[in-house]
Write a protein that binds this DNA or RNA. Structure first.
Lengths: 216, 216
DNA sequence: AATGAAATTTAGACTTGTCTAAATATATTA
DNA sequence: TAATATATTTAGACAAGTCTAAATTTCATT
């Protein structure tokens, strides 16, 4: 199969491809916490294996084969996260690092059985969709809370920022997946927002609102 | 922490130490499927880290620190095997390779929660004891079936050979953990044995009897 | 105790994935 | 469009872990 490093590169290219047709060397270096020269070396190797389309200086994209591998790793990552939260009672801000290791456990039969054991969950603890064993998943059409107006609202279904600090903050404010929120007020000065939930009123900054995703 | 290679060396030294005070370079090379010269290199590194006692040409043994790491890896291996069999419905001959990967997942909190989730099992699917979170475990005093006489018997509690072929054979013969067996006859010619179980009579070779462990 | 066999270690090389520093290509802007 | 800034690649080095071949140590046997 592929090495751990190769898998991490493919996964990173996949994530960066969501908002672009092509991914740059520096973007990858930043995400992977490494140097541009190291990225170039690895891109040559992945191109050699026909997992990416690479023209020097022009950025990269995944081939169908590369995307398949990337989606499979993401499937594993999200299923393990679901397991850690739903079966082992971890909090949603604790599971990322463990899932980063578990996603590289090679057996597909293991992950398919884990999927079955948990009754085929469709979303991970952060609201991200879990690809099925064929790599297929639905993309929710979510909007950041910052994009809606007064008296509008919806159900929290995801986050853009997966950092521990952000997740812990949301947890403390009870702004978790499934909560219904309505915008009660928008402060003109700094665009912070006052939200109503079933049992609470909470003021959040524009930054927080920007990273909180809802379904209308 | 330690690298994957280091962990595998410590684990192997631990396993080989069960039947000896000191482990040789060649024994390790054979078990780890590598060359003696590679073993020597790694032994120097582990000695440098004070995880083993190593004098050139004199073999190695684990220090207390090294043993602690080895036992923790074995704890992880056996708990994951238990999970795979009891929760994901794998057969006892299918889980070794997966557990070889899973045992290197670093988080101790993960493994402690997995332990709790499964209600602190004491033995893995092959009857081997599972160390608790302090590294402690009871050693059953088991005997090979080949060592007992006519009309004697006991309960199958373990195996010496963990190979797929052996485990599959036992499964097919319903000679699995927990089964009660009695020796009905010993064939003088080749020391094969006729066993009675609750619902069956089975003849097994000396080789099979030698690797099948029972509690009296 | 000497000698040959077996076990072990050393020396030097290779691969993977990384790095720094230098070179080159692309983009920006005056 | 020429000059400068930025992005990317190349060149050469390094650490981890492995290998082969040669050297050395220990063991077994006479």
């Amino acid at each position: 199969m592929n090495t751990l490093a190769e898998e991490n590169y493919l996964k990173s290219i996949y994530h960066l491809s969501v908002n672009a047709t092509s991914v740059s060397t520096n973007q990858l270096a930043a995400l992977l916490n490494t140097k541009a020269s190291s990225v170039t070396d690895m891109l040559k190797k992945l191109a050699e294996k026909e997992l990416i389309n690479y023209t020097p200086y022009q950025g990269v994209s995944l081939t169908a084969a590369g995307e398949k591998i990337a989606v499979n790793i993401i499937r594993k990552h999200r299923l393990w996260e679901y397991f850690l939260v739903e079966k082992l009672d971890f909090k949603w801000d604790q599971v990322h690092e463990m899932a980063e290791e578990l996603e590289h456990i090679s057996s597909n039969e293991l992950i398919d059985r884990l999927d079955k054991f948990m009754e085929y969950p469709k979303f991970d603890p952060h609201g991200d969709p879990i690809p099925d064993c064929n790599g297929l998943f639905k993309i929710h059409n979510l909007k950041p809370v910052s994009s809606i107006g007064i008296n509008e609202g919806g159900v929290i279904c995801g986050v853009r920022d997966h950092s521990k600090a952000y997740l812990q903050y949301l947890e403390k404010q009870s702004l978790t997946i499934g909560k219904k929120v309505t915008v009660a007020e928008i402060i003109e000065f700094d665009h912070s927002m006052v939200l109503h939930t079933e049992d609470n009123t909470i003021q959040i900054s524009r930054e927080v609102a920007n990273n909180l995703l809802i379904a209308l």
